[in-house]
C-alpha cells in the first residue's frame, strides 16, 4: 500500500526540485530571443497563442 505512494511522492519531489533548480539557472543572455522563437514555432501551442 505505501510503496506506490513513496515512489510517486519521491518522483514528484525530484521533479519539483529539478524544475526549481532549472528555473533558478538563468538563460544565457544571447539566447533569450531564440528560446521564445523555438517555443512558439516548434509546437502549435495554446500557451503560445494566448501569450500574444
Amino acid at each position: 500500500m505505501w510503496i506506490p505512494i513513496v515512489v510517486i511522492g519521491g518522483l514528484v519531489l525530484v521533479y519539483i526540485g529539478t524544475y526549481y533548480l532549472n528555473k533558478k539557472t538563468p538563460i544565457p543572455d544571447e539566447c533569450k530571443d531564440v528560446v521564445d522563437e523555438a517555443t512558439c514555432t516548434a509546437c502549435h501551442n495554446f500557451t503560445c497563442s494566448y501569450k500574444k
Binding site: I8, L11, V12, V14, Y15, G17, T18, Y19, L21, N22
Partner: peptide, 10 residues
Amino acid sequence: ILVIASLVQF
C-alpha cells in the same frame, strides 16, 4: 512522465 520531465529539466 515524471522521470522524463525531471530528466529534461535536469
